[in-house]
Design a binder for these strands. Sequence first.
DNA 1: ACCATATGTGTAATAACATTACGCACGCAA
DNA 2: TTGCGTGCGTAATGTTATTACACATATGGT
Lengths: 141, 141
Amino acid sequence: MNQIRSMDKRLTKNQELVFGALTGTEGPQSAYTLLDRLRADGLRAPLQIYRALEKLIDLGLVHRLESLNAFVACSHPSCSDHSTVAFAICDDCGLVNEVADERLASNLKEVAVDYRFSLKQSIVELRGTCGDCAATSAKPQ
Amino acid sequence: MNQIRSMDKRLTKNQELVFGALTGTEGPQSAYTLLDRLRADGLRAPLQIYRALEKLIDLGLVHRLESLNAFVACSHPSCSDHSTVAFAICDDCGLVNEVADERLASNLKEVAVDYRFSLKQSIVELRGTCGDCAATSAKPQ
DNA sequence: ACCATATGTGTAATAACATTACGCACGCAA
DNA sequence: TTGCGTGCGTAATGTTATTACACATATGGT
């Protein structure tokens, strides 16, 4: 929260509102969900949300989850390489775990080299069930 | 084409039309692009496309590209594990290369284990520039 | 033959996600 | 002061995907 606040300095009002809405809730949120939550704060149009999200993503504060059409606040905004992050998305509870695995990142880079592909961004989204949900459904009571 | 034909046997008319439209063009296509191309064949509603795509994906004949909201025919329909495939998507020419890398697949499984995540599907989409496009833009003439 | 079930079809309407176009405002540097 | 980059607000539109309903066909069991 302290670190987060310190980054707010450079954010505009709309960007701060959107970022606040994302950090204030666990789990990913769609642009329109954000819009609904921020109507009370004066935001009225999708574009206001999308513009803020675009900037926040540029700044590395927010990630887009392609398979969900939704957005999450970055779990470790101070980290270096935001272009290679993976997400474990629980299809049960909807929560998302941001995974930073150095071997995975370098593995993807190698694959790109093998295929003579100039890699700009890696999208890695793991779908399945998180440990908590698996435990819960295993012991129904 | 011969191999493809042999698989058509189990496909319904709509599924065959959609699969044909995907294999008959290089590069990914959106559901609505497919619909437009298939209007002449009698398809009229998005749902007809989406239903066919769903089945084709189940059968492992087609992949969905999440970051593009588009679909491609699988490059190697006979291969075993369709849950872990990667795609190299060229942002220049739009072509997609299907990547089957065993190390990447096992790496993702390891990551899932590390995070106590029960993995059902891996979405891996590499964005960047393909070798051909890189070569072309390097020599502008 | 009868029924149940699973799968596929067709149409219409609507929901959900995202962008384009336009005009205005502010801060800053040439 | 002018020009430029960035952000803001509004409206309209474009694109992607789903829900709801009704009907059809094939299969397998009794």
